[in-house]
Design a protein around this nucleic acid. Sequence first.
DNA 1: CGAGTGACCGCAA
DNA 2: ATTGCGGCCACTC
Length: 104
Amino acid sequence: MITQSEFRSKIEYLITRVSVGKVITYGDLAALAGHPYAARVVGGMAHYGNSDLPWHRLVNRFGGLASGFPGGREVQAQLLAHEGVTCTNYIVDNFDAIRWSPIQ
DNA sequence: CGAGTGACCGCAA
DNA sequence: ATTGCGGCCACTC
């Protein structure tokens, strides 16, 4: 059991730790923060939280781009493509391969 | 200050 | 196999 502040701090820490050209899922991020079922919290923070963090690297469990991203999924896809992540139909290609791992 | 919302995920029927 | 629902925490109104 961790504190709420710790949860938020871990999310920000982890999202910053994600390497360029990689992506991570809401569930994994929440799980790494200590709450496997708090994926929604990550989404809420992404929307209202610190906008300085690379939220465009966040994708859902299927590897698809988020729906409420500022500007639309096309913008997120563009940002990912700019970092070397290729997408097709708003779905990340080689999702399993570029999926970020906490071991790094 | 109180209540509702939100870019999701996993399990039950 | 598919569909529907509950639940977690932070942020806003």
